[in-house]
Amino acid sequence: MAKKYIILDTETTGTGEQDRVIQLGFMVLGAKEVEVYNEYCACDVPISFGAMETHGITPEMLEGKPACKESSAYKKLLELNSNENYLIIHNAKFDIEMLKKEGFVPQMQVIDTLRVAKHLLPDEEAHRLQYFRYKMELYKEEKKEADLLGIEIKAHDAIGDVLVLKLLLSRLKELTTAQFQGKNPVTKMVELTATPILIKSFNFGKYKGKTLEEVASSDAAYLRWMLSSMEKIDEDLKYSINRVLSV
């Protein structure tokens, strides 16, 4: 069976533990054709006003819609969920955790374009999807792509973001090929997704703007305190702190 590439995005009721998927959109890239799936999903969790402000989905838009598990899009995703296929998401951890609440356990190989971009373009001021949409001028290409696929372009809409992500994936593939010559770019992006990201400086707290190396020299005890006392320390930050402390 030919490998398939599933480029996916969700919209949700919010970002908390109780929040759920209310839009599931993805493209399936096969050997010859592109399939598009895009559905709104009803749920019992109210949509937060902050989420509404971001994606524009209101409760009225979900009336009469199936629950995520019952949607055609979700059922198709389950059909595709095997190890020979690739799941491509920007900030995959968030969307996968949301889908796990619906019973989805990913078996596909995962490419997180956010993590790949952080590895390939560490000095960019941001790595958000909409940032790259403008920085890489993807917006100049998306209308032609959207017309071919019959997709309406809306910022922060699941299927609209999937379209931008498809274009970003092509650029990241080119960058991966250039930076890792002789390597299969798809395999390398899977590898980069799983590879810790070396964080160079703090973007929060009392040492905001300082490099980890500077803080390790002046206040190593603070870094050790972070490792021992912060329950939800970011895995990349944890890796980076351990690295500077071991030098």
Rank of each mutant, 00 (worst) to 15 (best):
T187A: 14
F204T: 03
H90R: 04
Q107G: 04
L163D: 00
V21S: 01
P59R: 05
T54Q: 08
G50W: 12
P196N: 08
P185M: 07
E235M: 13
K3T: 10
K100M: 15
T211Y: 09
H127R: 10
I6T: 04
I89C: 04
K4L: 12
D9A: 03
L245F: 11
E70D: 15
N203V: 06
V21A: 02
E53I: 09
Y134T: 11
Q109A: 14
D236G: 11
C68I: 02
E33T: 13
A51W: 00
L121C: 10
Y131Q: 05
L212G: 00
L198P: 00
E17W: 12
Q130K: 11
Y207C: 10
W225Y: 11
K135P: 02
M61Q: 13
E145C: 12
L99P: 00
M1C: 07
M27G: 01
N184W: 13
K69N: 09
Y74H: 04
T193W: 08
D123S: 15
E231T: 10
T193G: 12
C41W: 00
V215H: 00
Q179V: 01
G103A: 09
A194N: 12
V110Y: 07
K183M: 06
E142W: 11
L167H: 04
I96D: 00
V36Y: 06
Q181R: 11
G205Y: 07
Y139F: 15
K154N: 13
R243E: 08
Y5F: 15
L114S: 05
W225S: 08
K200I: 10
S240W: 02
C68N: 03
C41S: 08
L77Q: 04
K69T: 14
L149M: 14
M230G: 01
T177S: 15
I199G: 00
T195M: 14
R20L: 15
E33V: 10
S218G: 07
Y239S: 07
C43H: 05
M27Y: 09
E174Y: 13
P106R: 06
N85V: 07
L78G: 04
L165R: 02
N81M: 09
A2S: 09
L245K: 06
L175S: 06
E137K: 15
N91R: 03
K140V: 09
D219E: 13
F26V: 07
K238R: 14
E235G: 05
L168P: 00
I22D: 02
V110T: 13
G205C: 10
L149H: 07
F26T: 07
L24A: 04
L169T: 03
T10V: 15
L29V: 15
C41P: 01
L8G: 06
L172E: 01
K238H: 13
L167M: 14
K154G: 09
F204M: 05
E125W: 08
I22Q: 02
P185K: 12
I7K: 01
P185V: 05
K183A: 14
